[in-house]
Write a protein that binds this DNA or RNA. Structure first.
Length: 933
DNA sequence: GGACGTCGGGG
DNA sequence: GTGTACGACGTCC
């Protein structure tokens, strides 16, 4: 916060390493560059680099429509418009594959006509795989394959082997011939490379397409429309990266349009449906047996229309409704009207449309025998539903991504429900109703449905379209179409981003097993049993109250280490004997000093551009609010990628899984924090009170000390060490990751203390928060002593209330979100006990499952009979419970000693830090005054 | 009372 | 289906 960034220092010290790497590598890297590095930015310039694929087409058979193995086909829909021969500048919103036509196509939103057009590939791009098997041999092997088109010999650079490889490119008429069937080519030809990449993504890589940028169609050819970016912006940016390698400068040019092309307002609507349903039963979207009774649709003018089924032609009281209403006496007509309205928008937003609304509508349309041509939905071979004419943005999928929840929204929402998101992000709740949807008056139904559709829309529009902009920006960076992007998770985003950059540079995309085999496993032992390698350091806290404490931390430490130490799957444990001396401490690994690692370069680039450009601009008062907000969106999208960039290398489902990369990053971080502690203590004579992963708590440093540390960090690590907070005072307990501090700006920072955890009962939370509140006002050690007395009084008062059973049942409730299905619990945990009791008490109610919020209170032990509930075999038959769900509990059930324990364990963490003893001050017989006198 | 499992929060 | 470290509380033996 407000940290000064020493740009020049950084660049220079960074330069020293990079120029070293560059120099020793010059001959090699020049060779690598020859490929298509400079010419891939525009698809127009792409002819040379992709010319190889055209060559065979002149001589070989043409791809024919003979494949019967394609498992999904796009039907002709009346909502689809084909792109004309020439189409003005349009927004690339999607890339897909049409199995029937055996062609890739893109969806282009043309703002002039307000329509989405489909442009089918005209370059005869075809699916392929790569192999080291010779052309002749492959041709012999596949001679009788109907879908086999031919082979070409191509050259690619393998980063893993550090050499150019001559490969056979095996081309087929359709993607399933390459991979996805039992007898696909990738099963027949070994080794095969790049054979498990979805075809439409391959199409994006090969053509250097960037979803979310502008393209036009000229003489049936797709070409990018370059945005006008002020020279000034470009020059300033290049200046930031001055002195870095040629490849990084290339990257700056490549990403200019991605960051600076405007994000146009794309018109969109949200859709939410209501279905006739039996009491407490969610209708099955696969069966779609019940009528659709109402559909809400909100557009960008914030106009909400509710299409409602009114078979009995009841009079609707207009005074009771706030939205537009369209009445239908026939369900089929209702659906058709909504389909027609939806077709006007290039983006349609739902909340869980993938899992419910659209699945239901598609199946219902089939049931009602709506003409296929009028049904806007298309099924993929995985039975997903998407829209033939536009893109479907399912917000449930997007907000569910942990990386988005934590890094883009600071974890403000806990549960992924429309109500919770509306409440926490928009301050707008769903309408509550006592009755079932089935029993609502028409007016109530209309209002309820309208509200849901409004919340859904506003989740994308609040704060200047923050969510849409975030999605577009991440989609541009990772090169994933919005449709794929919002349905994939962070490791796939990073995978796609890195795959694109490999292809862009004509590098062979490595196979997971080759990385693992060549780079080996880990060499440190994890502290926690079952983990693969050792993680971060947490410095032992110095117990007590400390005044004037500076918390310094490294700016995005892990990504910075990946950048400055050149960490990448190919540079870790490289083949050069000379590099073996460049050891990673505490491990058996070493890093290459000859080549720049690709992930190091990419992660380093987005780190630098975030820190040196967008982060400052997000807060720059000299910029317009709109510019600031856009910068903030970009910096937060970069943050999302950066924060996951280290972790993915340690995740065995990541395509470039490389445990030594993750392990080395953690080891170097440990080294950085340990050295900083040592330097502070030994060279500067400072007292280090605590530290966690990338932070260090320093007692009473002078401004000179701080400056000295910042300078030393830049020189030693080329990473900014800055001041995160200054605490007027802070309290450290003997527990790690447990402390509080009051900043000089006068607000409290609380870490790990139970009183802040969301499932702590209010009874304990209230005195905790009250105590913290008065601690926040404390200015001097003398005032602290006074405040301690107050806190003791507060605590004693609550303790006495508990003894007298003077509390509300709700105040004792412990809320837990179930993390598993009921049958999957292998032990008789308290949340499970409560869930089972609920199921017994309400056999017809909604069954608790993953994500259900269960509230319970602690009781004296009692037994229940739960034979009727299906549980894991691991759980024995005797069922003793120590909790009761709040719905079933009474005050007399409460186990008083346990509640007192709970209060104690919550508050003792805070009291410990300020030196109040629970036994003496709260439980003890001594009066308050005598204890202090 | 110790080993082990589960959960949650935070980075 | 990004990583590990950590504390609290529970069950099971």
């Amino acid at each position: 916060m407000g940290r000064s960034i020493v740009k020049n220092d950084n660049k220079n010290s960074h330069k020293s390493l990079m120029s070293f790497i560059q120099d020793s590598n010059k001959a090699d890297s020049d060779k690598k560059k020859e490929g298509n590095l400079s010419s891939k930015i525009n698809i127009r310039d792409n002819k040379e680099s992709t010319s190889t694929k055209g060559a065979f087409l002149n001589t070989n058979k043409k791809p024919a429509n003979k494949s019967k193995g394609v498992s999904f086909e796009e039907k002709g829909s009346s909502y689809v418009h084909l792109a004309p021969e020439n189409l003005s500048s349009s927004y690339l919103i999607d890339v897909k594959y049409d199995g029937k036509k055996e062609k890739a196509y893109v969806k282009l939103f043309n703002p002039e006509q307000g329509k989405v057009f489909r442009w089918y590939d005209t370059t005869n791009h075809l699916p392929y795989l790569l192999t080291t098997v010779s052309k002749a041999e492959v041709e012999k092997k596949l001679a009788n394959e109907k879908e086999f088109i031919g082979c070409e010999v191509i050259k690619k650079y393998s980063l893993l082997n550090e050499k150019e490889l001559t490969l056979t490119k095996v081309i087929a008429t359709n993607p399933l011939a390459i991979g996805g069937r039992d007898n696909s080519y990738r099963e027949k030809i070994s080794p095969s490379f790049e054979a498990n990449i979805r075809y439409h993504l391959n199409y994006i890589y090969d053509n250097g397409l960037v979803p979310g940028l502008f393209y036009e169609v000229k003489n049936n050819k797709l070409q990018r429309v370059e945005p006008k970016i002020p020279n000034e912006v470009k020059d300033n940016l290049l200046d930031i990266f001055k002195g870095q390698s040629h490849e990084v400068l290339q990257l700056v040019e490549q990403y200019l349009p991605i960051f600076f092309a405007p994000i146009p307002k794309i018109s969109r609507c949200s859709v939410d449906i209501e279905v006739e349903s039996e009491k407490n039963k969610i209708p099955d979207p696969h069966a779609a047996l019940q009528k659709v009774i109402s559909i809400g649709l909100t557009n960008e003018e914030r106009e909400t229309t509710v299409f409602v089924l009114n078979e009995e032609k009841k009079q609707i009281d207009q005074s009771k409704i706030s939205v537009k209403v369209k009445e239908f006496d026939d369900e089929k007509e209702l659906l058709l009207a909504v389909f027609d309205e939806m077709s006007k928008y290039p983006i349609v937003i739902t909340f869980n449309g993938d899992g419910f609304d659209f699945l239901y509508l598609d199946n219902r349309a089939k049931k009602l025998e709506i003409d296929e041509k009028m049904n806007p939905f298309v099924r993929t071979r995985f039975q997903n539903v998407f829209l033939s004419h536009s893109i479907h943005l399912d917000l449930y999928r997007f907000f569910r991504q942990p990386a988005i929840r934590i890094y883009a929204f600071g974890g403000v929402y806990d549960r992924i429900t429309l109500d919770e998101l509306g409440k926490t992000i928009l301050g707008k709740e769903k309408l509550k109703h006592e009755k079932d949807i089935w029993d609502l008056d028409l007016e109530e139904l209309i209002e309820y449905n309208g509200r849901d559709s409004e919340i859904t829309f506003e989740l994308t529009s609040f704060n200047n379209d923050q969510v849409i902009n975030l999605i577009v920006m991440l989609s541009r960076i990772t090169k994933m179409p919005i449709d794929d992007f919002t349905r994939a998770s962070i490791s796939i985003w990073i995978q796609n981003w890195m795959y694109f950059e490999h292809r862009f540079r004509n590098y062979l995309i490595p196979r997971r097993e080759d990385i693992l085999q060549l780079k080996g496993g880990t060499s440190t032992e994890a502290i926690i049993k079952g983990k693969k390698y050792q993680g971060a350091i947490v410095i032992d806290p110095q117990v007590g109250v400390w005044w004037d404490v500076h918390v310094m931390d490294f700016a995005s430490l892990y990504p910075s280490i990946i950048k400055t130490r050149n960490l990448s799957y190919e540079t870790l444990n490289c083949n050069h004997i000379e590099c073996k001396k460049n050891k990673i401490p505490e491990t058996s690994h070493w890093i290459c000093e000859k080549h720049v690692g690709i992930s190091s370069m990419l992660i380093g680039f987005i780190r630098d551009i975030r820190v040196y450009w967008f982060k400052d601009r997000a807060k720059d008062p000299s910029l317009s609010e709109e510019e600031r907000k856009l910068s903030d969106v970009i910096q937060s999208s970069l943050k999302v990628l950066l924060n996951a960039s280290y972790g993915v290398f340690g995740s065995d489902n990541f395509a470039l899984y490389c445990p030594p990369v993750a392990e080395s990053t953690a080891a170097l971080a440990r080294e950085a924090i340990s050295k900083t502690k040592k330097y502070s203590e030994e060279k500067l004579g400072l007292q280090v009170l605590y530290g966690d992963t990338d932070s260090i708590f320093i007692h009473k440093p002078t401004p000179e000390n701080i400056e000295e540390l910042e300078k030393w960090s830049m020189e030693t690590f080329q990473i900014e060490l800055g001041t995160d907070y200054v605490f007027r005072y802070c309290g450290l307990s003997d527990r790690k990751k447990n402390y509080f501090g009051i900043t000089t700006e006068g607000y409290p920072i609380v870490k790990g203390l139970m009183g802040r955890k969301k499932n702590t009962p209010i009874l304990a939370k209230r005195p905790f928060e009250k105590s913290l509140e008065i601690l926040t006002d404390v200015q001097t050690p003398e005032e602290l002593e006074e405040t301690k007395k107050k806190i003791i009084r507060i605590t004693q008062a609550v303790n006495q209330k508990i003894s007298k059973r003077n509390f509300e049942l709700e105040d004792l409730a412990i809320s837990v979100t179930l993390s598993k299905k009921i049958e999957q619990y292998d032990s008789w945990t308290q949340p499970l006990q409560a869930a089972v009791q609920l199921m017994l008490a309400f056999p017809d109610g909604e069954k608790p499952t993953v994500g259900s919020l269960i509230s319970f209170i602690k009781t004296k032990p009692f037994k229940i009979q739960a034979q009727s509930i299906k549980l894991s075999d691991q759980i024995s038959q005797s069922k003793e419970c120590s909790v009761k769900p709040i719905q079933l509990a009474e005050k007399s059930d409460v186990d008083i000693p346990k509640v007192k324990e709970l209060l104690k364990s919550t508050l003792i963490q805070l009291l410990d830090t300020i030196g109040i003893s629970w036994v003496e001050s709260i439980e003890g017989q001594k009066s308050l005054d005598s204890w202090f006198s």
